[in-house]
């Protein structure tokens, strides 16, 4: 999460969440987003974090946090326990992004997902010209040491949601700092956004 412009990202996420919502932040890091949302929207927040030192940080801030793994531990929550679940910059590091997405929309009414867009023009151009896995400010790991298992583009994400029965309601443009209704794939959006940020929910049968 340190890779993205946190404040901007936090602001947009806060704008998506009504006051006093119950929220779980999966991969909550040091709890700073939950703290921000508590302050801005008086949410009832919970965190899940895999890194124990970060769990300790959350505990010291009074944040309720479960040391856990998004791939394994979301199954422990009942359906619709939360109003919102948040997964920022973590989807690409999960073993099974599809299962994690499905679990998120099962345990919460709506989910907010953000991830680095591998289809951004800089990355695409870098790959085309250098023929090497791109390393940039936002993708700072070498290919052989990256914790990121499943890079995807914004268009890949849109396809996955469709496959998993997940409706995309809104998409955020972190460049213009705007929230837009989602009307389907958009070439410009997927080309110029380094980060995809979406509000999604489960398609009810």
């Amino acid at each position: 999460m340190s890779l993205i412009n946190e404040k901007k990202d936090f602001r947009i996420i806060a704008d998506l969440i009504p006051a006093k919502s119950s929220v779980i932040d999966v991969g909550c890091n040091d709890g700073s987003l939950l703290e921000f949302l508590k302050e801005e929207k008086d949410i009832n927040g919970r965190g899940m974090e895999i890194d124990q030192q970060k769990v300790q940080l959350c505990l010291s801030k009074g944040i309720s946090v479960i040391e856990g793994d998004a791939d394994l531990d979301l199954y422990d929550y009942p359906d619709n326990l939360f109003d919102y679940s948040i997964l920022t910059y973590t989807l690409q590091a999960t073993k099974s992004p599809k299962n994690v997405l499905s679990e998120l929309v099962r345990i919460s009414s709506k989910a907010i997902i953000s991830f680095p867009n591998f289809g951004h023009w800089k990355i695409a151009t870098s790959l085309l010209i250098n023929r090497k896995m791109p390393i940039s400010e936002k993708l700072s790991y070498s290919w052989h040491e990256t914790p990121n298992l499943h890079f995807c583009t914004i268009n890949d994400f849109i396809d996955l949601c469709e496959e998993a029965g997940i409706r995309i309601e809104k998409q955020a443009n972190l460049k213009t700092n705007k929230l837009n209704e989602f009307y389907g794939k958009n070439l410009l959006y997927s080309y110029f956004n380094e980060v995809g940020l979406f509000l999604v929910s489960k398609i009810k049968n």
């Binding site: 119950s22 919970r46 124990q52 769990v55 300790q56 959350c58 505990l59 944040i63 309720s64 946090v65 479960i66 040391e67 856990g68 422990d76 929550y77 009942p78 326990l81």
Partner: peptide, 13 residues
Amino acid sequence: NTLGINVSFIEIE
């Protein structure tokens, strides 16, 4: 968790 209780958990290695 199921009951919405404010619970934290840590597994110490």
